Simulated assay, not measured.
Amino acid sequence: MYRRRDAPLLASCQKNPRIFSPPWEDETTAGANLGGMLRFSGFEAFPFTRALVAGKLSDAAFLAACVPDAVVRSASADAAEWQAKARLGFATATLESQLAITGRTPGESVTFTLANRTAGAGLGVMTKLSFDDAAGGTNVDWTAEITSRSGLLKLAPSSLLQSQVQSLLSDLWQSVRTKLQDAVP
């Protein structure tokens, strides 16, 4: 019977998931010491009233309209679906996205899930936005956590995914600023 020389080492590593977690197992990403999830957070300040900012950013239709180059298929206050081109490194793909508002406290906070899929890959995100008054405007504290990866995205390095998501978030917040400015009477 053939036995690999490193079989005892492999067996001990498999008992301890911190040492051995191959990418083909059904797990989420390894990143940022957050239980395998990638987490993004930030702070945005807007020179608009809390009612306007919270009202718009709690509306799924408004959020979908803020996605650069998106073709919105359906949108309501609680859910939206769109299609957009996505770039991950050198590859470009058509991304199908669905946003669903999962919690809303008017004027205070909103939480939503975002499901993205393309041929051979998928990504799930949970996001929370909190609204606070500030001198001359509104502050938005936000967190977004990648809760699942599937297909080819499971094999993508977390650092590549992180840099691409940060670039996307920067573009998205700029678009939100523009759309909010357009919404001011």
Rank of each mutant, 00 (worst) to 15 (best):
A60Y: 00
V110T: 02
G31R: 11
R50P: 05
S41N: 12
R177L: 02
R117Q: 12
F43W: 06
T143R: 10
Q181E: 11
S148T: 08
A93C: 09
T28A: 12
D171C: 08
I146Q: 02
S97V: 11
G122M: 03
D6Q: 07
Q174N: 15
L160P: 05
S167P: 02
T111V: 10
W24N: 13
T147I: 05
I146P: 00
E44G: 06
R3D: 07
A32S: 11
F46D: 01
R3E: 11
A80C: 13
L123W: 01
L160M: 15
A32V: 06
L169D: 04
A84T: 11
L172R: 06
L88Y: 15
V176E: 12
A65D: 14
T102H: 02
R5P: 00
L172H: 12
Q162T: 14
L155Q: 14
S175F: 01
R39M: 09
S41Y: 09
G36I: 04
G137C: 13
F131R: 02
N33R: 14
C13P: 00
L88S: 10
T29C: 11
Q14G: 04
F20N: 07
R39S: 11
A115G: 01
L10W: 08
A156W: 06
M126D: 09
K154R: 12
D171G: 14
I146H: 00
I101M: 12
E25L: 15
A183S: 14
V165I: 14
Q98R: 15
P68Y: 06
A70V: 10
L63F: 06
S167R: 11
S97T: 11
I19G: 00
S158K: 12
D59E: 09
A75E: 09
P8M: 11
D133M: 01
D133K: 03
E25G: 09
A100R: 09
E81C: 08
Q181T: 07
V140A: 01
N139R: 10
G122K: 02
S76E: 13
Q181Y: 01
V176W: 13
R50H: 08
R3G: 05
L123M: 11
G55W: 06
R149I: 04
R3F: 08
S97G: 07
F62A: 06
T102F: 00
V140C: 02
M37P: 02
L34A: 15
Y2E: 08
Q83C: 13
G151H: 01
P47T: 04
V176G: 15
V53C: 04
T49K: 01
G42M: 03
L160G: 06
Q174K: 15
K128Y: 01
P47R: 06
T118I: 08
F48L: 13
Q181G: 03
N16D: 15
P68N: 09
L168W: 06
F48W: 10
R87S: 15
A156G: 07
T102S: 09
A60K: 02
G31C: 14
R87N: 13
A119T: 14
